[in-house]
């Protein structure tokens, strides 16, 4: 069974590709309601709750048009989190945080990451 490689993954913000993305994650969850009652026989039962999602993407800060230049905390944008060239999650999102990391002792590239939360319904790739 062929495995999917992440090497063609990318992230677009409002349709524009962000540069030097190295990793992205997207986690969906339901805030389910747990309860016990006269009908649950001594066990807790759960009911499906409201849906939401969150994630992050890492990037290397490019000298020209760095990804973080297009990311403002609190901004609402539509993220396309792509598995490959054609299959993407389309996620209305709000940027919760943006971080930059400069490795002075190791001299590695300056990296960063942004964390986001969904704001509304998203679509998943077919």
């Amino acid at each position: 069974m062929p495995l999917l490689s992440g090497k063609s993954g990318r992230v677009l913000a409002d349709g524009a590709a962000l540069a030097e993305i190295t990793l992205w994650t997207f986690k969906t969850l339901r805030r389910n309601v747990a309860y016990a009652s006269s009908a649950t026989g001594g066990f807790r039962r759960r009911l499906p709750g409201v849906r939401e999602g969150s994630g992050r993407f890492n990037f290397v800060v490019a000298a020209a048009n760095p990804a973080n230049a297009n990311l403002q905390t609190g901004a609402e944008l539509t993220l396309s989190l792509c598995l490959d060239a054609s299959r993407c999650y389309t996620v209305p999102a709000m940027i919760d945080s943006v971080a930059i990391e400069t490795d002075i002792s190791g001299g590695g590239p300056i990296t960063g990451w942004a964390e986001f939360s969904t704001t509304g319904a998203w679509t998943e790739p077919e």
Binding site: R31, V33, Y35, L47, P48, G49, V50
Partner: peptide, 11 residues
């Protein structure tokens, strides 16, 4: 008296 409220107000 009675009060009716959502069991899961977040949904």
């Amino acid at each position: 008296s009675l009060e009716v409220s959502p069991f899961d107000p977040g949904n």
